[in-house]
Design a protein around this nucleic acid. Structure first.
Lengths: 261, 261
DNA sequence: CGCGCGCTTGACATAAATCAAAAGGCGTGG
DNA sequence: CCACGCCTTTTGATTTATGTCAAGCGCGCG
């Protein structure tokens, strides 16, 4: 458990060094691109036009700040490529990453009018940005959009509850195993099609600092734990900052607290 | 941080012994009672009739199970009196309480059709229950209801993010201070009217076990920490399982990691 | 080719967990 | 009404998982 006077976890600076993930084509925005259906879709022809006019495509380098905690909430985003980290911080710099937003995810809802969290790109991110007033107006016009958004937020809430269980009650080993499984799931969801589950690979574009801040651990503990899993041949590193899950079942056991060892 | 083979945290058995909180009158359901406006209200005359017919009033004793993790999601609740705990568990019995639902709160949304969490009453709870299909039908008819529900879930998500920061990055002392402030806030919200902030009292109807499972600590650590705060004259116990905050500002400092000591 | 940054590994420190026991509350039954 | 018994809570002693401090390594970039 962390001690009060922690050195601030620095925001990840330029990791331009990291290879770009060799994903397929640029993904399209789930909201304003008419060639796709998707989670948040539910927009009729007129709405589509409105969205197309009020939206703007963005390409952001790694380490870009997308929203700042406490800022007035002016925009709503749909991620189309890359990964964004969402986080909350304490005044002394301690930080908790509350989630990673992968392609297809939205980001930027707020009830108070101020963002309750910060968001920063992990790698190069493509996103579609909507101005808040226009987006909210649209929300009122488009009942299906509203329903899909409600469903999406409900999902996020369930994820958050799962993460609370992890943060409050899991050991370091269980946390790391859970994280890897989640990232493998994310990888698979991103590709969507492709074969089901031969030997999954976790997409890990983030640094150890980010992983530690996500799991409520230190980078040393994360590193040691990953090393241990590698030593035990449960995982193996790939090129491209991926981690191959050599024994997903064993990892699942560990992640749910039933792990041997 | 918890170790793997923890003894199961038992669900609170009969604590019928606890005094009933002497709240004012029975609260009304925010959804189906026409005499009030409120968070989730946004229902027209016809909707109100539909709600009134599909809803049922419940009175549940302390320790009642309202929903079970993994169960098919058949109902949606609005709490009108008392406090409910929501939680997730690991197979070996470790448990994380993800939140407490006080009067005015809803509970029971699910996207998958299965509840992702368990819910159990802390004290005597009055609630209004809606059957899921009827509730969902209504949701489609009532755009304002949908919008209010979206806002409510968005709030819950922000709360969850705050709790993740607490679980992952705060010390025991900071966790307890945050908890007490949150409960004082809940107490004030419940009363709604009444004077603003003379010397707040935290409503603490739950046991040490529940507090520990909410904060990701053990009961011993919770007890020791509360004792320390009491020794330091920052808090004092009241009758009725309340805790008076003698120095809310100092507690706020502690809760945000700026605490002296 | 050497500096900086991210990662790993080792040695040691500590906040919180675990183990243990006593003290306080409350209902029950004599 | 009091005494017994079952919980819950508190407090103390000790252990431990994880944090902290400190090198050292690898790799890309200037």
């Amino acid at each position: 458990m962390p001690q009060p006077p922690l050195p601030p976890s620095q925001p990840t600076a330029g990791r331009h060094t990291r290879l770009e993930r060799a994903e397929g084509d640029l993904q399209h925005c789930l909201l304003c691109d008419r060639s796709r259906g998707g989670l948040c879709n539910g927009v009729d022809r007129d709405g589509l036009e409105a969205l197309a006019h009020s939206s703007r495509r963005l390409v952001l380098p790694p380490g870009s700040t997308m929203v700042e905690e406490g800022q007035t909430a002016e925009a709503f985003f749909n991620i189309t490529r890359g990964t964004v980290k969402l986080f909350k911080s304490l005044p002394d710099g301690r930080r908790q990453i509350t989630g990673f937003a992968d392609p297809g995810q939205f980001l930027g809802l707020s009830r108070s009018g101020l963002y309750a969290f910060g968001a920063e790109t992990v790698d190069t991110v493509h996103a579609c940005r909507f101005q808040r007033p226009q987006f909210e107006a649209l929300l009122n016009d488009q009942p299906d959009l509203k329903r899909n958004l409600l469903a999406a937020v409900t999902d996020k809430l369930a994820e958050a509850q799962e993460q609370m269980l992890l943060l409050g009650r899991k050991t370091a080993r269980e946390k790391v195993a859970s994280f890897l499984l989640g990232r493998a799931q994310a990888e698979q969801t991103m590709r969507g099609d492709t074969p089901p589950d031969p030997m999954p690979v976790a997409s890990v574009p983030m640094t150890r600092v980010d992983i530690a801040d996500y799991l409520g651990l230190t980078i040393e503990t994360v590193s040691r734990t990953i090393s241990a899993l590698r030593r035990e041949k449960l995982i193996a590193s790939t090129e491209n900052h991926g981690i191959r899950l050599l024994s997903p079942d064993a990892l699942r056991q560990i992640a749910t607290g039933q792990g041997a060892g």
